[in-house]
């Protein structure tokens, strides 16, 4: 097989941040792609944050109660909503990518996106209502 040269360009080195997140003039697929990467990174950071906060349990009851008081402040609850948004978007868009990736709905990928996003929005609204009323 012949040698395949790389698309590396010494003058304009590849820049993942630009390739993934510069969505100016791009279409739905790129917006979904960028937001998927962003929520994926954010959820990974959150996982470690979550473990760090859980380690507060090691400081006994008072340390944990202090944290719980903070966790009930409206600002913190808002962060919860953002977290739920991230989970819903990443999960639902992931379903779309997996389905389209298997050839299911490849032609309908835009419609699939919007249907899943409507479901996501409804779930987000219900979750927000629960978070603020429980």
């Amino acid at each position: 097989m012949q040698e395949i040269r790389t698309t590396h360009d010494a003058v304009r080195p590849k820049n993942p941040l630009r390739a993934w997140f510069d969505v100016r003039k791009r279409n739905l697929g790129s917006w979904a792609f960028a937001l998927n990467r962003l929520t994926g990174l954010a959820l990974t950071v959150y996982l470690f944050l979550h473990l760090a906060i859980l380690s507060k349990l090691l400081q006994g009851e008072s340390g944990w109660n202090e944290f719980l008081a903070l966790a009930r402040s409206p600002l913190f609850l808002l962060l919860d909503i953002i977290l739920i948004f991230g989970i819903l978007f990443h999960g639902l868009n992931g379903i779309r990518v997996a389905l389209v990736g298997m050839g299911v709905g490849a032609r309908q990928h835009r419609r699939l996106f919007w249907v899943l996003m409507v479901i996501g929005t409804l779930l987000l609204l219900v979750s927000a209502w629960k978070v603020f009323t429980i």
Binding site: T6, T7, H8, P16, R18, A19, W20, R26, S30, F33
Partner: peptide
């Protein structure tokens, strides 16, 4: 298409 592809934008061997 290659110019517009975000994956080609990160993987030189794509």
């Amino acid at each position: 298409c290659v110019s517009a592809c975000p994956v080609a934008g990160t993987d030189s061997e794509y």
